[in-house]
Amino acid sequence: MKKLGSLLAILLIVSGCSEADRYNFKGSGDNWDVFYTVDATSQDSKEATGKIVYTGEEPPPETIIYSIESTAGASSGNVSVDEGEVLVGKSACEGCAVIQQDEQLDVEIKWDGQVEEFALTTEQ
């Protein structure tokens, strides 16, 4: 009987752990490609990561200031560019608004006196 109770408890715990909904956003400007992944772990919690890739013809800048905005909030930073790429660190929140799959994210990248703005979307 104890084994059955333990098995039921484990099954209950495992069934409560569902896979997160993953949304892959991407977009391109004249000089940059941005890839941004959102894992909606529940209705009010998420984890997000991303990558910004320089595609321009000039040598890549040493630093950029970026902002990725949605109706659920923003991710931004003043970061170094390493071999033409920037990794947008993992951000997470609980009890927050969550980015939805059909949402459009607005990107702004500033570098060396230049500014580029474009949108990120998911393929549906």
Rank of each mutant, 00 (worst) to 15 (best):
K2V: 13
K3E: 15
L4H: 03
G5Q: 10
S6H: 03
L8A: 14
L8G: 06
A9D: 06
A9L: 15
L11P: 01
L12Y: 05
V14M: 12
G16A: 15
C17A: 13
S18R: 12
A20R: 07
A20E: 10
D21S: 13
R22D: 08
Y23E: 07
G27D: 11
G27V: 08
G29D: 09
D30L: 11
D30H: 05
N31H: 12
D33W: 00
F35E: 15
F35K: 08
Y36K: 05
T37N: 08
T37C: 05
V38E: 06
V38H: 07
D39M: 14
A40K: 11
A40F: 10
A40N: 10
A40S: 15
A40Y: 08
S42N: 14
D44W: 06
D44K: 11
A48E: 15
T49H: 02
G50E: 13
K51Q: 14
K51S: 12
I52P: 03
V53Y: 01
Y54G: 03
Y54C: 01
E57S: 13
E57P: 00
E57K: 09
E58W: 00
P60D: 02
P61V: 03
P61S: 02
P61N: 03
E62N: 06
E62M: 03
T63G: 00
I64Y: 01
I64W: 03
S67D: 12
S67M: 14
I68N: 02
I68L: 10
E69G: 04
E69P: 00
S70F: 04
G73C: 08
S76Y: 13
S76G: 13
N78Q: 11
N78C: 00
S80C: 00
V81L: 01
D82L: 10
D82W: 01
D82K: 09
G84I: 05
G84R: 03
G84H: 01
V86L: 06
V86T: 07
L87M: 14
V88E: 12
V88D: 11
S91W: 03
C93T: 01
E94P: 00
E94N: 04
G95I: 12
A97T: 15
A97Q: 15
A97S: 15
V98E: 13
I99S: 12
I99L: 06
Q100R: 13
Q100V: 14
Q100G: 12
Q104P: 00
D106Y: 09
V107C: 07
I109R: 04
K110C: 04
W111K: 02
D112K: 10
Q114R: 13
Q114Y: 05
V115Y: 01
E116K: 02
E116F: 03
E116V: 09
E117F: 00
E117Y: 00
F118E: 09
F118G: 07
L120I: 08
T121I: 09
T122V: 14
E123Q: 07
Q124N: 07
Q124A: 04
